[in-house]
Write a protein that binds this DNA or RNA. Sequence first.
DNA 1: GCCAACGTTGGC
DNA 2: GCCAACGTTGGC
Length: 153
Amino acid sequence: MKYWLVKSEPDSFSLQDLIDCPNSTEMWDGVRNYQARNNLKAMSEGDQVFFYHSSCKIPAIVGIAEVTKEHYPDPTASNPEHSGFDPKHSEENPRWFVVDLTFKQALSRPITLSWIKQQEALSDISLISKGSRLSAMPIEDAHWCYIVNCAKL
DNA sequence: GCCAACGTTGGC
DNA sequence: GCCAACGTTGGC
């Protein structure tokens, strides 16, 4: 099992929004960056995912979700009406993908970006290193465990 | 709202 | 294939 982190702007889709989805499950669509896409494709069913709130007052990891369906073509990329439409994408020859994420639990306290930056043990976490703008990125086991322990689930 | 750090696009 | 121009992300 692998660990990941996905980002979402809470103004457009928050952890609560995921909880409120049917079966607390949502198709994670709209990724239009190749590296982030490759990370989506590397996800397996059962992988655990930190849910991170970005571009907001207090950027933080706020919860945990699970990959419940492995990657499949992003339907929003084939929809000309959709802002994520890509004419070079098709069902037959897909360029962009989604996974399904299911809510698992909220952290009892959010793990803020500013706190993460203060932790020696997390000094090389992908979230604050090169390529940190990716909307989906891998998290090392040790970093995952450190954060989960500190969140006192 | 600013801007640094990227990623993408397209002319050549 | 280079690189300038442009767009996006996301912290501050």
